[in-house]
Structure formats: structure tokens, C-alpha cells
Design a protein around this nucleic acid. Structure first.
Lengths: 223, 223
DNA sequence: TATAAAACTTTCTAAGAGACAGTTTATATT
DNA sequence: AATATAAACTGTCTCTTAGAAAGTTTTATA
């Protein structure tokens, strides 16, 4: 059995290398040659596997979004209540494995590609929709139906805002601070009763523990 | 009296042209030649007034941030209470003159420049700090002191999030929707009493009217 | 082992960033 | 007004980059 085609392995290596290049040299400083250099191949190989530079950057963009997806699925597997699934979403976005200098910075750098790349737009739109849908699904359990959509939307937008700010300044972002901001906003937006607040705190603690294991760097090596 | 030096006029023309180019061709598609073409001069002129491409993009970035500043000052002039000044901040960020397809898209495109350009980082950091300080100053009047900083920070982050989402998809953003989201979040975060809510509504209405005049496209031609 | 397809390399071209030398235009000084 | 000086601008040259194309090697499969 052939595990994965050479092409798919190369594409993965190359998009990883491109990610590296974007971190090191910025979007404008990322050239096909540098990407090849990091991957240990010639520029020609890069263009053999990606039709042009846009296609390569698109793959990097897709990759960084899929990291988020993977981490969410891992946490979902161990979340057993709406509150816990809600916090799984939060920790998927703001655990060290995902919410770190490199990834945030790369994401912000790649944002510039989106307005003129309809494939990136689709990826990003799908991502926003997925987060909103996930949040809505859990919010329904502790918020009146007619406010669910609005709150889910706002929390999604807030997540983007936190990410952007983290990416802009090329410093290590503070996971706990981000999670605090998310919690703070949530509790006010859903007007959580003190009983509900306890559930949230408990769920956050549990998912935090799970995230520490399930999203540990050793276990988190994407294909 | 010499109104403005030739250089300063040229720099302004050129950064305006560069802004145009970023909109039309994206960050990666923006070349010095195209910028010159839009401005009706040769590439050499561009490099005469800006030491390199980064310096040019920096100027565009600064420009789009200063638009925000100008619109805020205009509205402040007519705001007469904390509530009104609070809403002046909101309308400075989300009036058609500022919050439109072109500006949002350019802003997002230029974000990619920030992580590797310390001057852009300084501009952006100053901007964040200013918005936070402005918000804090007004929030103090209808929120207990020990929550002011946190809420100001969150609202600033939310504004960034709304902007990013608007810039990503190259469509005309919806000003009223953005303002509704901002209002919605504010009212919950400050736990506004029904009396306070009335003040907010009234202030929003008033500033809306003022913005329609003071920020009308005819009157808003930045230097 | 023959054949095709996929992976990879090398070479070439057009376009871009930016340096530099030289020319023109504006400003200030006597 | 005449001259000096600085600023604005132009054209040319070099080096780097994206990407196309044509050719070579490797791998898979019948």
C-alpha cells in the first residue's frame, strides 16, 4: 500500500517551507527560490508542484486554517457537554500550538493575499462560517434562540480581532489573556447567571487540561 | 507664503497613487512602475521621494490611519457629552467615508507589511493605543473604573475584527451593520440600564446626523 | 522489460527593485 | 539680474524574480 503519493508529500513539504519563508522574510520577501532553498530543492520543483506563486500561498493559507480544524476535532472528541464544546472552540483557537507568534504572523501576512485571490476568499469564508456554526450550536444551550446568531457572529469577529492584533507585532502572544478576553466577552454577551458562570469556569478548566495533552507539541505534528 | 513644498505635495500624490495600486492590483501586484503610471510620473520619481518600496507602503499605511484620525477630530468638534464622544469614535470608524470597500481592502492588504516593518508597527501600535485611550476616557462616565480598561480593549479589538472581515472579501461593507454590532456589544459589556440605553440611542442618532454632514465625501478630501 | 507518466533540472525571457550619473528646474544670495 | 546651491527629475544599468519551456531522470505499471 502506497501511503501517500510523492506529489502530495512534496506539496506538503513545500507549503511548510513557504510558511517558514513567510515567517522569516514576510510576504513580499518570500521568493520561490527561498522556498526551494528551505525545502532543499530547486525553484523549478516548487513550480512543478504549484502552478504559480498564488497557488503556493493559497496552500499555506489553507494549511494554517486546517491546523485550527484539526485541533478543534481533537478537543471535540473529549468534550462532553455544550459548555465543554464551547470551550473546545475557544481552546482550539487560543492554545499555544495554534495561537503562537509564527502562526499568527503568517496568518496576518497571508491576509493580504485574500482580497485578490478568490480561492483564499472561499477558504476564509468557509472558515468563518464553520466557526459561527460551531459557536451557534453550543450557544443555543445557554442563550435564547433569537440572540444566538448575533452573539456567534460577534465572538467570531472578536476571535479574528485578537488574532490580527497578535500577528501584527511579531511577539509571542499571550494565550491566557486571549482566553480571558474571550470568556469576559462571552459571559457578558450571554448574560450568564452565576450558576452558568460556574459551568463555564468548570468547562474551561477541563478543556484546558485536555488541551494541554491533546494539543501538546509532540502529539501535534500535522501531516 | 509657500503653502507646501513640492516634495510634500508629490509624496501625497504618490502615496495616493500607491493606495490606488494596492486596491487595483493587491500588495504583490503593486509595482513602482504602476504607481508611477497612476500618478503620471516615471518610476524614478517615486524612488526619488521614497527611499524604497517599504517607505512608500509605510506612507500609504500611515495615510489610511490618518484618515481615521481626521474623521474622529471632525466629529469630536460637535460631540458634547461622553455618550456623544463615544459614538463619535464609533462613527469615525464606521462611516462610509472610512469604512468602505477600498479603504478596508487596502488596510488588510497593508497589514502584511506590518510584521516586518517596525515603522508600520509603531504606527499601528500608536493607533491602537489612541483608540483605547479615547474609548476609556468616555467609558469612565458610564462604567465602573475597574472594568474600563478591559472593555476599551475589547471594543478596540472588535473594531479591528470587523475591519478585517470587511477587507477580506472585496465587497462593500455594511456600515449600519457594523455600528449595530458595536452597539450591541457595548450595551452588554457595560450592562447598560434602560436609561443608559436611551442615552446611547440618542447619542448615536445625533452623531449619525453630524457624521452625514461632517464626513460627507465632498467635505472629506484629505490633503 | 517496455512504456507512460510523474518528478525533477536547466535554461531562457520579461519584468521588477533599486543604484547611479547626469540634466533640468527652483530657490536663495549677493 | 547674475550666480550658487539644492531639489526635482530622467534615463540607463545591474541584479533578482516569476514563470515558461524543453529536456532528462526516476518511478510505476502492464
Amino acid at each position: 500500500m502506497q501511503a501517500r503519493s510523492i506529489s502530495s508529500i512534496r506539496r506538503s513539504e513545500l507549503s511548510q517551507a513557504a510558511f517558514e519563508a513567510v515567517i522569516r522574510y514576510g510576504l513580499r520577501g518570500t521568493t520561490l527560490e527561498k522556498v526551494g532553498e528551505i525545502a532543499g530543492v530547486s525553484k523549478g520543483v516548487v513550480l512543478h508542484h504549484f502552478k504559480d506563486k498564488s497557488a503556493l500561498l493559497e496552500a499555506v493559507f489553507r494549511r494554517s486554517n486546517s491546523l485550527l480544524n484539526i485541533s478543534l476535532l481533537r478537543l471535540y472528541r473529549h468534550a462532553e457537554s455544550p459548555y465543554e464544546r464551547f470551550w473546545a472552540i475557544a481552546y482550539a483557537n487560543f492554545s499555544e500550538t495554534i495561537y503562537n507568534r509564527e502562526v499568527c504572523q503568517a496568518w496576518v501576512s497571508l491576509l493580504a493575499e485574500v482580497p485578490h485571490n478568490s480561492m483564499c476568499q472561499r477558504v476564509q469564508a468557509a472558515n468563518n462560517a464553520r466557526i459561527k456554526s460551531n459557536l451557534s450550536h453550543e450557544l443555543r444551550h445557554f442563550l435564547v434562540e433569537n440572540r444566538v446568531s448575533e452573539v456567534a457572529n460577534l465572538l467570531g469577529t472578536l476571535i479574528d480581532g485578537i488574532w490580527v492584533r497578535a500577528g501584527l507585532f511579531a511577539i509571542t502572544p499571550d494565550c491566557d489573556k486571549a482566553l480571558d478576553e474571550f470568556e469576559f466577552t462571552t459571559l457578558y454577551l450571554v448574560e450568564a447567571s452565576s450558576e452558568q458562570q460556574k459551568y463555564h469556569k468548570a468547562a474551561r478548566e477541563k478543556i484546558k487540561t485536555i488541551a494541554k495533552i491533546a494539543l501538546s507539541p509532540e502529539l501535534f505534528q500535522p501531516k
